[in-house]
Each structure stands twice: as structure tokens, then as C-alpha cells.
Write a protein that binds this DNA or RNA. Structure first.
Lengths: 125, 125
DNA sequence: GCACTATATTGACAAACTTCGATATAGTTC
DNA sequence: GAACTATATCGAAGTTTGTCAATATAGTGC
């Protein structure tokens, strides 16, 4: 018998009756990745990425004063960037006497890399 | 007439004579990573990361109209985000007739992951 | 106590970003 | 040709971000 998808008028629904693709692709519900976005935001700044790279190049935690010296920015500005990196979980701080020492949370970087849609999984830590 | 700046004393040199660290750590000249920052900035947005993940989940390029449908944002806004991702080199576009198809530049993501200071190198593509 | 040092916080401002509606561009279909 | 569709661009409004000077906090040492 003849088929019976009865003719839906194209204008009935705001939905497009487009022929752009042979089949409707599965649309994923945009899984929540707000933590990942926060980490990416923290890294997406020349100064903060520089701080992270600086920390990555040292086994020992670095004193804030040396971080400040490495950039041509005011101390409050560096302090602000350190706070953002800390809040994103990328670095951690420790106060010893008058000084504050920061170190890289390398696991957070691994987590980020593993969350990226890469061709192959990142090597385990 | 009387008072002027006297008493410079201790502040003769703005340089710190701190004892925060046993030895002065090597300060690296903050190598230029502006391209990496641009890619990170492009990813550091909920919508754009969602677009990238959406494209990563499909082998075929996706039509713009399906991308627009997947988010509760206006078409010009999605178009703007696509432009930023394109300029960062994360996606590429191809026009076929009336439609535009976007696909993920997976190599760009690999380059980013390899640029991150990870404990171990990312698996090769 | 007082003076000094290192770091964090506050408040302000300009620049950059996200979003939208309106419009432009370019292709299709009649 | 005209009407229509999909996508891009423009211009403006509101929000967020990066930066600094000023100030606060907290530790050291006299």
C-alpha cells in the first residue's frame, strides 16, 4: 500500500526541513564542561600561561617575589593572576614565614588534556 | 622652600635582598606563546568548547544549521563563535551550495596538548 | 612597642568579550 | 527576473577581564 506519512506542511513547525545533510546528525545535549572551561580560561592569558610554564620548569615551588620579577607587571596584578590560577586548581600555595610559595598542580593539567577531544588518549601520568 | 625629598636611605635600590630561596632560581624569559594563548582563548568558552566537542563526535563535517540548533543562542552569535574558532585554526569551513560545513582541525588540538607542560608527552597522532 | 618586608585585597578604569537585532551577501527555486 | 533560504557581518548594549595605585594584612626583627 501506499505509504502514509502524511504530508506535514513545511510551515507548520519552525523546524527546518533542510536537505543540508542526508540524515539528521545526533545532536548531543552539550554536556556540562564548566570546570574545563574554568581551567581553560585560567590558562588563556599570556601572563598566566607564562606563570604555569615557569612553575612547570621547576621542581621546587617558586616564591612569589621571583614570579613578580619575571614579568613586567605590578605585584598586585601578579597576585591577582595567581589567585585565578589557584581558584582553577592549577596551582597551590603554601605560606612559609613572610613568603608564599606556589607550585603547579600537574594532575590538573593532565585532567585537562584528557578532557580534550584528542585523536588518542593522553599518556597516563 | 624647606622640605624636600631627603632620607632616601634604605630605598636607594628598589631591588630586594630577599632570602626567600637558597639560590636564585633561573628565570626564564617568558617565551612567546601567543599562538597557544589564542587557541586556549578560543576554547575557553562554554559555547565554543561545546561546538568543538560536537564536531569531535562526528566524523563528517557538520552543517551550521545543526550547530545552531544545538545551542540556545542566536544564529549570529553562533556564527561569531565559529569565526573565532576558525581564526584560531581549530576548525575549518567549506561552503557547499547554500550550506556551510565545519569540521574539526584535530591536529591543532594535538599541537595544543603537546604544548602544555604535561608530565608526559601526549601520544602522537 | 616600632619599622620594615612580602603578599593579598580593594576600588577604579579602560579594553575586550558575549550577545542580540538588523542587515548584507550569496546561493536556490520558481 | 522575484521570492526564499542559509550564513556572515555590522552596530550597539551589557558584562567580564586585566591592570594599576592605594591600602590592608601578616610576619620579621629591633
Amino acid at each position: 500500500m501506499t505509504t502514509q506519512i502524511q504530508e506535514l506542511k513545511v510551515t507548520d513547525r519552525p523546524w527546518r526541513a533542510s536537505s543540508c545533510c542526508p540524515a539528521e546528525p545526533a545532536v548531543r545535549p552539550a554536556e556540562n564542561s564548566s570546570d574545563m572551561v574554568e581551567v581553560l580560561k585560567a590558562l588563556a592569558d599570556e601572563t598566566r600561561l607564562g606563570i604555569v610554564k615557569m612553575l612547570a620548569a621547576h621542581d621546587e615551588p617558586l616564591c612569589v617575589c621571583h614570579i613578580v620579577d619575571a614579568f613586567e607587571l605590578s605585584q598586585p596584578t601578579i597576585s591577582h593572576h595567581l589567585k585565578l590560577l589557584r581558584e582553577a586548581g592549577l596551582i597551590s600555595s603554601e605560606k612559609r614565614g613572610l613568603w608564599a610559595y606556589y607550585s603547579l598542580e600537574r594532575s590538573k593539567l593532565s585532567t585537562l588534556a584528557n578532557g580534550l577531544p584528542l585523536p588518542a588518549a593522553v599518556c597516563a601520568n
